[in-house]
Design a protein around this nucleic acid. Structure first.
Lengths: 200, 200
DNA sequence: ATAATCAAACCGACCGGTCGGTCTGATTGT
DNA sequence: ACAATCAGACCGACCGGTCGGTTTGATTAT
């Protein structure tokens, strides 16, 4: 099939682009480098993407979709809020584990979001959705009295910050400390602080 | 004084460079742009710095020195470990507040550290010193039985991740939420989780 | 069956413009 | 006078993006 070949080429380009962006960053990687790594000509690249930034944005949106998918799981992972947050901790291990390879891209996304308005809007909206979802979850726990009476928005902010910070530690120091499983434990440690006293 | 004029020029260049790097990132800012913003010629720039990267590295090292100075304060801010960590929370507010302006540079430093070996070594060493210092602090608290018997290294990792994550949230969403004072509260929230039950 | 046709995929030479860095001659303070 | 300092023209390399032309493979007409 003709179409199939095109899709494969596009996939190769995206894969190569991701590798380059991770290694060198967005600005420092040339389209030519991406093409070489993809085994494809420059013309092919611009046949599939109108611009270098367009390719980057596709990668970004796919990454966001992956996160969104993970977010869905939280709401179905337990009866009480602490149980669901526990599920979140387990999920975090997976997400961080999987993010390990793509993590430099994460920093690149973050940086681009702070200077490209389009990218910023694309980032901030799911980011706030995350925080809101966490806050709702925590709020339930407070209502159930299974969590301490904390400010849900604040606690959610702390959770997100913790996740972001752990990812960045993984980026900077991949081999340093056993941070892989530690991520889940870290969240559980935080949850101990959140939990009402009569919880384990 | 001739020398003094030169130092002032150098300072203006560094200030301009920092602004540009924050706005556009390292790769995207040209030396010419830095010079224009500094009100200085290209010749002046290359009189003071052999290379664009050299200027960036000076900024980086100064930033690290600032962090190191902050770190010193922790050891003299209270008698018991919880008190000192409380002092840390207060300090964090200041640091994050002050980092608010320089925060995009933080992301830039992080990114460069992941691809430039020299920069990585310059980063990872003080980073680990931070974690070790936190861990020691927490360990004291555990020995005093003023903190729960947690893994000090893990808890320190969480603290650092939290700080890093909060900075990044500030970068991405400067106006979103009242994250300024929230940073200190967040750390206190975490400390509530760390504290032994007989502490306030 | 096979020649003709077509649209999409692909190639790589090429363009205007920008980059980091150099160089020369003028200006400054002493 | 003279050493330190600066301005900005200038250089080769390289960038993102364009374009005319070629290849590919499915479809149609005969």
């Amino acid at each position: 099939m003709t179409q199939q070949r095109g899709e494969e080429t596009q996939a190769r380009i995206l894969r190569a682009a991701a590798e380059c962006f991770m290694r060198e960053g967005y600005d420092a990687t040339g389209v030519a480098e991406i093409c070489t790594r993809a085994g494809v000509s420059k013309g092919a690249f611009y046949h599939h993407f109108p611009t270098k930034q367009a390719a980057f944005l596709v990668l970004f949106e796919r990454w966001l979709q992956g996160l969104e998918a993970s977010l869905q799981v939280i709401h179905t992972s337990g009866r009480t809020a602490p149980q669901r947050l526990e599920g979140l901790a387990a999920m975090a291990e997976q997400v961080l584990e999987q993010a390990n390879g793509q993590a430099p891209m994460f920093v690149e996304f973050w940086r681009q979001a702070t200077k490209n308005p389009d990218m910023w809007q694309a980032t901030i909206e799911p980011y706030r959705r995350f925080r809101t979802a966490f806050a709702a979850l925590i709020n339930e726990g407070v209502a159930e009295q299974t969590l301490r009476p904390v400010d849900p928005n604040l606690a959610a902010q702390v959770l997100v910050a913790l996740g972001v910070g752990l990812i960045l530690q993984g980026v900077l120091d991949p081999g340093g400390a056993e941070w892989r499983g530690a991520a889940g434990q870290a969240i559980r440690l935080l949850l101990d602080g959140l939990a009402a006293d009569d919880n384990g």
